[in-house]
């Protein structure tokens, strides 16, 4: 009589185990096929001179890497990607934080503002790029028309990256804002009431209560945005033509990866570029992971 419950329990544990995996399976399979396999295949390719249409790859060791690290174009693209990240992330995070704080107040037309700021997230990137192309056009663009100047926003090597960053900031503002808003609404009102009783002004409240309490969300946004910003591609791809004089000073690593892998069919070299990007991204993420201990407050 003692044995039965045990085997019963064992059986149940086994069926729970199977069911658990059954539920996990779709996600795991998806991850393996869409993410994990491509990552390793990319690394594999980066050590090869790739043949046409994915056939006849020849192993070349670190040859691609040696070439890439001496390639001025790639080093410049690395610089462009980093500069873009340094412009887009801090500005968009700071601005969206301020916007979120404003949108968290009880002001008129709040939902209208929220919708307008979130709108760029919903618009198709291709359509967005078409509109910005026209806005930035030197000769016929709206921005220059209003300014009464002739600034070559996207074809002057000195400012084209800034123009791309402006688009980047504009498109991501709404998304960051929604995340911050969600975090802000989690902050209990009691803290503010207590602070007011103690005579703290709005600014002090923001820096002493709001910021620390939403710091986990700020950390999350920073990490994901840095990764995404280092991968900037679509705006550049759609704004810049291959004859653009500013191309060399604007193209990002992913843009070069695309060009080598898909236009020139040099998958091996393209993969090398993207593995280099992976390393850079890892370094930044690890640094942020160490840094967060100093400023992120978990309750």
């Amino acid at each position: 009589m003692q044995r039965k419950p045990i085997s019963y329990r064992r059986q149940r544990r086994r069926s729970e185990f199977l069911w658990g995996w059954a539920f996990l399976l779709p996600t795991v399979v998806g991850l393996i096929i869409l993410n994990i396999y491509p990552i390793f295949y990319t690394i594999y390719l980066s050590f090869h001179k790739s043949g046409d249409f994915g056939r006849n790859n020849i192993f070349v060791g670190f040859q691609n890497y040696a070439k890439a690290l001496k390639d001025m174009q790639i080093l410049k693209a690395m610089r462009n990607s980093l500069l873009y990240m340094l412009m887009e992330v801090p500005i968009s995070v700071a601005l969206s934080l301020v916007l979120a704080a404003l949108m968290n107040q009880k002001i008129r037309f709040r939902t209208v503002y929220r919708t307008i700021i979130f709108l760029p997230m919903v618009a198709a990137p291709a359509a967005v790029a078409m509109v910005w192309r026209w806005l930035f056009n030197t000769e016929f663009g709206l921005i220059n028309h209003i300014l009464g100047k002739k600034i070559s926003w996207i074809s002057d090597p000195k400012i084209s990256l800034v123009s791309i960053a402006i688009i980047g900031i504009w498109s991501i503002l709404g998304y960051n804002m929604i995340l911050f808003l969600a975090a802000l609404q989690e902050v209990p009102n009691d803290y503010y009431e207590a602070a007011e009783l103690d005579g703290a002004g709005k600014a002090v409240q923001f820096f002493r209560i709001t910021l620390p309490l939403i710091s986990p969300m700020i950390y999350f946004v920073l990490v994901t945005r840095v990764i995404a910003a280092l991968q900037v591609f679509d705006t550049i791809y759609m704004m810049m033509d291959r004859t653009n004089p500013a191309l060399q000073d604007t193209q990002s690593l992913v843009f070069l990866f695309y060009r080598y892998s898909f236009v020139e069919n040099n998958r091996g070299y393209g993969s090398t570029i993207v593995v280099l990007l992976l390393l850079i991204t890892l370094i930044f993420t690890v640094l942020q992971n160490y840094g967060q201990k100093k400023w992120v407050i978990y309750d």
Binding site: L34, I36, A126, F233, V254
Partner: peptide, 27 residues
């Protein structure tokens, strides 16, 4: 955390490629 970050990174890369394809289709 770092594993999931790597995965996220890969995902966004893959999504990046996929997206641009889609856009072109629309365009």
């Amino acid at each position: 955390i770092s594993l999931s970050l790597i995965a996220a990174m890969g995902l966004s890369l893959a999504a990046c490629g996929g997206n641009s394809g889609n856009n072109e289709t629309k365009k």
